[in-house]
Design a protein around this nucleic acid. Structure first.
Lengths: 355, 355
DNA sequence: CTGTTAGCGCATTCAC
DNA sequence: GTGAATGCGCTAACAG
């Protein structure tokens, strides 16, 4: 097999201790709380560590302290770029710390999520970051009973388990509908797939706002439990056209669907934004590049990743206070060429300039 | 802080042992090598485990055995979908095992990669999966000296460190050029960015094949160290057109660049595939959806992820043999509408029907 | 096939 | 500010 070397006696705390002429426990302290050790022993110890190339053994540390340095991260997908952006934020932030990430992929399944939560919790993690605020009952109970900090991300709720950093999908969807209306569109449809909790909330936001504006029409709602993709966006748009041909605009639950709809519109020679306004959700990289460029709701995914780790860190800090209030980040409408720059004069209502 | 509960005396091996009326070590064995324990003690032990809800303590296990169950995975990006596909394969495969993944993001930096290799190796990982075959000298030495199985992925080489599962970028690029030639294009350019080792190899493949076909033209090579993106593809295509306006086809180092080039061609009313053939690399989801759909070289990224874990597993198996030969997976040209279906009759410009 | 003994490397608790 | 003793939960190496 692959083994090539036997374990060359590892450098341990006591090796360092001997060289620095102190006891092992002092070295241990010096590493974890440098300020609790006198100036010059600290210097000696650090030198010894450096000379010997000492590296702490995490397993031993975890065993003795009953606390690992592992942060569990539970997300529903490893390929959806919404979550890979979160991932990047998490990793960028975690590198500054002595923590380590372990990912669990729930595949959008609440029961898989529950299992992951259980598995992680059994490992005495330093903290847990979980996407969403909807869990199985058992899952939520475990999170609440957990002895480590828990951060829910990517959504908002009145009753977070512990800490939370997310944004409102409801408000984002409403802003999208409002924008379509401001631009003069009066017959908006919605394309939505993979009906996970956050998609549902966006649909609810669409519905509420459209109703308030008096432009809601059930026949213009197209949804499917299938996973989102560009190809599916094209398909759903075709479906919508079949059942409500006079639709004049689209809120798509995400930019993949929107991109697909845009492509399908091009194939059908439907002019965007003149004959059809399109607004997506998330602001992926490609959204600025398609023809015409895609109006969308930008979501702070990377930022959520960063802040979730900072919250874990803050919670772990012995000076740490009680759990801070939830952090609700903003979403932002990014107007682009897939919606008009000005409302139509005819059915026209008023302004909506965004300089 | 976030703590809510004190550690409620954990269920340990000896608890299970007591209930099953055996010794702790037998329980330990039963968990790791069920077949080395007699039928009925095994049954008793498994029942006891179940009754008590016993969960092994990985930290203790790692400490005692000097071997963790962590597989280190070093990749250059967390957002590039080429690597998130690998990631998915790795996670799908690892779930079948008792192993666990830890990701290191090298950000395409060899020195960061070296640091990650060092850090991982210090944790006595069960195995290491590393993207690419190009490392710093120190990095390679560490890998060679490592006592755990190492799998290099996503590329090929004569001298793998240990195990390898990848595919040839050189051959993939050559196939692309050949296809463009077969379809009647005679003035191919190449767009390439983020000159990592694999991109360079693809460029070399392009160059060699084009030279052999007698259609190589240095002025049609456009490259930049910037990271690939759809927007950059548009930019590079514009640059190429400025320096070699008669270019009749494009091999793009990846599908992001190709997509950008396709978008830019649309903006300039350059007809694809009639006036311009385009071939990308990787076969991302979107490539089948753009207009016209993108001819590309499909790469087995998910499969590489899966197999890399299987290799680690095989190496860990005590029955395991010596390191198997490298596994070279195939890439596949996927002809789509961005190249003609038939070669041009002469040098003439027309046809390109796609039924 | 099963048990005994020993100790992995570190952190907790309490002395000093 | 520093140290000694003790054990975290498990597995290696033997013995039977």
């Amino acid at each position: 097999m692959g083994s090539k070397k036997r374990d060359s006696s590892r450098v341990t705390l006591s090796d360092v201790a001997r060289l620095a002429k102190v006891s092992a426990i002092t070295v241990s302290r010096c590493i974890r709380n440098p300020e609790r050790v006198s100036e010059d022993t600290r210097v000696r110890i650090l030198r010894a560590i450096d000379d010997l190339g000492y590296v702490p053994d995490m397993a031993a540390s975890a065993l003795a302290s009953k606390r690992s340095n592992v942060v569990g991260l539970v997300i529903p997908s490893l390929t959806n770029s919404v979550f890979t952006d979160v991932l990047k934020g998490v990793y960028d932030a975690i590198e500054e710390t002595r923590l380590t990430v372990q990912i669990g992929n729930s595949r959008y399944s609440p029961s898989k999520e529950e299992n992951l939560i259980r598995t992680f919790l059994q490992q005495r993690p330093a903290g847990l970051i979980v996407a969403g605020v909807n869990h199985t009952e058992a899952g939520r109970k475990m999170l609440e009973a957990s002895s480590c900090p828990v951060v829910q991300i990517m959504d908002v709720t009145d009753k977070p388990v512990d800490r939370l950093v997310g944004f409102s999908h409801f408000e984002g969807a409403k802003a999208a509908v409002r924008h379509l209306h401001d631009m003069g569109y009066r017959r908006p449809g919605i394309l939505t797939a993979r009906m996970d909790p956050r998609s549902r909330v966006r649909l609810a936001g669409f519905t509420e706002e459209a109703q308030q504006l008096g432009i809601f029409e059930p026949a213009r709602v197209v949804s499917t439990p299938l996973h989102s993709s560009v190809g599916l966006g094209a398909q759903l748009f075709s479906d919508l056209l079949a059942q409500a041909p006079d639709t004049d605009s689209l809120f798509c639950n995400n930019d993949d669907l929107a991109t697909g709809a845009l492509f399908e519109a091009a194939r059908r020679n439907i002019r965007v934004p003149e004959a059809l306004g399109v607004c997506g959700y998330n602001d992926l990289d490609i959204s600025a590049e398609v023809n015409p460029s895609l109006t969308t709701i930008a979501t702070p995914r990377y930022e959520v990743g960063l802040q979730s780790v900072q919250m874990i860190n803050a919670a772990l800090d012995p000076e740490g206070e009680a759990a801070p209030p939830p952090v609700i980040l903003g979403t932002k409408l990014v107007p682009r060429q897939s919606t008009r720059r000005r409302p139509m004069p005819s059915v026209g209502i008023h302004s909506g300039e965004t300089t």
